[in-house]
């Protein structure tokens, strides 16, 4: 196993256990919503997905700073994998959230809900991360520019949320307010366990992606060392760190 990915097995087991436990709670323990019924339980999926992906985007920026400070490729790899995973999580989150919104508010999409709108804007911004990387051929420049983008986009996430919230005159009443204590204890427990499960899932998948990419790079390096520079065909254009 490559040097930068450790504790993969332990993490995988912990993730499997937590996610299973969270799903059990979601299906069998959390109370059924009186008005919305079973569909309301998507809440335990889409909110953690959204929270984790937003944290992931910001982490991508933090890792980007790491790359700009040290110039070490592993930071680029971390930044790339964090943003890549966040993108997958957030697309899942916005689809699940949309289904929940339909069940909860009767609309697939609500412009008056700032969280939804700013989430969409953040996704739109980060969707440009891969095309940006892909269109820079020099791998070093690609890593550097991607890191700069990650820092700016990471800082953009909170600012954007504030501005969009300000723009909405009337904020939708939060049916489920986590801070307000409107949530019964059983829902709270389920929610926090789901959040933990999704966060662990994020970390595990990110580590697997890193391990696979580092393994590929290492294999190519060894092949070149053993068989000579010309024996290994050069990589085509790629958006991932190489």
């Amino acid at each position: 196993m490559t040097t930068h990915v450790r504790h993969l097995l332990g993490l995988t087991i912990a993730t499997a256990v937590t996610v299973t436990a969270a799903l059990v709670l979601v299906f069998f323990y959390a109370p059924l919503d009186a008005n919305q019924g079973f569909v309301q339980k998507i809440f335990y999926i889409h909110v953690p997905l959204a929270i984790v992906s937003l944290v992931g985007y910001c982490l991508g920026g933090v890792f980007g700073i790491g790359y700009l400070r040290t110039g070490k490729r592993v930071w680029d790899m971390r930044s790339y994998c964090a943003i890549h995973m966040s993108l997958i999580f957030s697309v899942g989150g916005i689809i699940a959230g949309s289904i929940w919104a339909k069940a909860s508010w009767g609309h697939w999409w609500l412009w008056s809900e700032p969280t939804l709108v700013s989430y969409l804007i953040v996704i739109l911004l980060f969707c440009t991360y891969q095309p940006l990387r892909f269109s820079i051929e020099d791998p070093e420049r690609q890593a550097r520019y991607a890191a700069v983008f990650a820092v700016v986009a990471g800082a953009f996430v909170p600012i954007n949320f504030i501005v969009v919230r300000l723009s909405v005159a009337y904020v939708h009443p939060r049916i489920l307010n986590l801070q307000g204590g409107a949530l019964p204890g059983s829902m709270k427990l389920t929610f926090y366990l789901s959040l933990l499960g999704v966060a662990l899932l994020f970390a595990t998948l990110m580590k697997y992606e890193m391990a696979s990419k580092e393994m590929r790079i290492e294999t190519r390096r060894l092949r070149r060392a053993l068989l000579g520079e010309d024996a290994v065909r050069p990589l085509g254009r790629t958006a991932s760190p190489s």
């Binding site: 911004l125 440009t128 095309p131 940006l132 269109s135 954007n160 723009s167």
Partner: peptide
């Protein structure tokens, strides 16, 4: 950023517009 990419006419707007959205709002 965009000027050093191959598809600079595309990267400029798709990167710039979301970043400018708060200012636009």
């Amino acid at each position: 950023i965009a000027v050093h990419t191959r598809a600079r006419d595309l990267i400029g707007p798709i990167l710039g517009l979301p970043l400018l959205l708060p200012a636009l709002i």
